[in-house]
Write a protein that binds this DNA or RNA. Structure first.
Lengths: 231, 231
DNA sequence: GTTTGTCTGTGACTTAGTCACAGAGGAAAT
DNA sequence: ATTTCCTCTGTGACTAAGTCACAGACAAAC
C-alpha cells in the first residue's frame, strides 16, 4: 500500500495486521458488484491479499508516495485531502465501504505517485490487494475494469464539482450544507478546525460564521459540538 | 459526440464535416501510442469514425449532455470548464492534440452525462469514434485501455491540483503564472475577461492586478494585449 | 487543585469579489 | 471621413473571506 525509503511513521507501525484470509462472502458483502467475478479469480485475489485494521487518525498516504497495493475499504472512512503551502487543508473526498482508494489504482496502472494525502477518518478495515495482482486482474476481468472506471469517473466528476464550489461558492452556504450533511440527529461532534480543514477555509472564518448562525437561531454551539436547530 | 432533444445550436450547425477516412499514419502521428494497436482494430476504428472540423468558439458540450462518440483531438485546443450560478467560469483543463475528451470516455464507459462544459478554444480537428465501437475496443485492447486510464488519472491529478490552487493560491500569483505560461514571445493577445474566465475570478480583479503589475514595471498593457517585461 | 493544552471568539488588518459607473478604443454603419 | 455603437478597461464603494495576534474558557493531565 505504501512504500518509501524512510522508516515507517509512528502511525504505520501501530497498524494491526490480520492474518486470516477474508472469505469471498465477507468481501462481496461490501462489494456486491464483485459477485460477478469468476470464483477462481476471486479466490486468487483474496488468497494473495491481506486485511488490515487502521486506527482513526493514522496517516495512510502522503503526497508523492508510491503504491505497492490497492486498498478496498471494508469498513470505516478514509479522508483524501490536499495541503497548501500555508498548512491549510481541504478534503477532496472520503472513501467508504464498498469503495477503493482509487488513487491507488491510478498509481498502479499509470505508474505515478500518490497525488494527495490520505488519513483514516475513523477506525478503518481494508483489504490490501498487491499491485501486480491487481494490474493483472484488471487486465483480465471486465467487471473489475468497469468498477475501477466507474469509480475513477465518479471521483473526477466529484472533484470538478469541488472546484466549482470552492471557486464560486459562498463559505457560509458551504458551511451550512456541510453541517446538514454531516450531522446525525441534528448534532455533530467536531471542532471548528476540523470543519475548516474539510472545507478548505480558516478556523476563524468557521468560528465567525457559526457565531452568526447562532445569533440567527440556526444552531446551538458548545465546545466540540454543534446542534442544528429547527428552521 | 453530442446528443439532445433540442435542435442543434447555431455553432453545431456550422460544423464542417469531412467524409474522407483518416489514414492510420495520420492518426498515429498525433497518437503515437496507438502504433501498438493491431492493424485490424485500427482499421475498424478509423473506418467507423469520422473527422470533424470545429471552428473556434463553437460549443461542443454543455453540462448534462449525453455522449454518442468520443473525440480524439488531431489539432487545436478544446477548453473544458465549469460555470457557477453567477455566470462566472473556471477552466478545468485544456485538451490538445494527442489527447481525447476523456469525459467522453467517462460518459461512455460509466453511463453518465457530461459533467462540465466544452468549447473550441481554437479551430479544432477531431476524430469522432462512435461510443459502441470505442467501448468494444477498450474491452478488447490493452493499449487503448492503458491510454484511457493514464489520461483519466492525469486529469484527476490535474483537477485536484486546481482545487489546491483555487482554495489556497493568491490570485496575483496565479495570474502571473498564467501570463508566463500562456505568453509567446513575452506577449499574449487576450482580454481581461478571458483571463478571469480561465482563472475563475472576476474581470475587475484581473484588471486591478494587471494595473498593479504595470505600476511595478512587470507588464505593459494595451487593449486586448499584455506584454511581459523583463524582471 | 493546579497546570497546560486545546478550543473558541474577536479585533484589526489585507485580499478578493460584487455592483455600478464612466471613459477609451475600435469595429461597424453611414 | 465621420458617427454610432459595442467591447474593453479602470475605478469607487461596498461586502465577504482570510491572516495574524491575542485573550479567555474549557477540560485533560498531573
Amino acid at each position: 500500500m505504501k512504500e518509501g525509503a524512510s522508516a515507517p511513521s509512528f502511525f504505520v507501525r501501530i497498524m494491526i495486521e490480520f492474518t486470516a484470509m477474508l472469505t469471498s462472502k465477507e468481501f462481496t458483502r461490501a462489494f456486491p458488484a464483485f459477485q460477478k467475478i469468476p470464483v477462481p479469480l476471486m479466490q486468487e485475489m483474496l488468497s494473495s491479499s491481506r486485511t488490515q485494521a487502521i486506527p482513526s487518525g493514522a496517516r495512510i498516504y502522503a503526497e508523492g508516495d508510491g503504491c505497492t497495493a490497492i486498498a478496498f475499504v471494508l469498513s470505516g472512512e478514509i479522508r483524501v485531502y490536499k495541503v497548501g503551502e500555508t498548512g491549510r487543508e481541504i478534503t477532496l473526498y472520503e472513501i467508504g465501504p464498498g469503495e477503493t482508494c482509487i488513487l491507488n489504482a491510478s498509481c498502479i496502472l499509470a505508474h505515478t505517485t500518490y497525488p494527495a494525502h490520505a488519513v483514516a477518518a475513523s477506525n478503518v478495515d481494508v483489504l490490501l490487494v498487491p499491485s501486480t495482482v491487481f494490474r493483472r486482474l484488471v487486465t483480465e476481468n471486465e467487471v473489475l475494469r468497469d468498477f475501477v472506471f466507474a469509480l475513477l469517473s465518479q471521483r473526477l466528476s466529484l472533484v470538478m464539482e469541488l472546484v466549482e464550489e470552492v471557486a464560486f461558492g459562498r463559505v457560509d452556504e458551504r458551511l451550512m450544507g456541510y453541517l446538514i450533511e454531516k450531522s446525525e440527529n441534528n448534532s455533530l461532534d467536531t471542532t471548528h478546525q476540523k470543519i475548516a480543514n474539510d472545507l478548505g477555509t480558516s478556523r476563524e472564518v468557521v468560528s465567525r460564521l457559526l457565531k452568526d448562525f447562532e445569533r440567527k437561531g440556526q444552531v446551538r454551539l458548545s465546545r466540540n459540538s454543534i446542534t442544528l436547530l429547527k428552521r
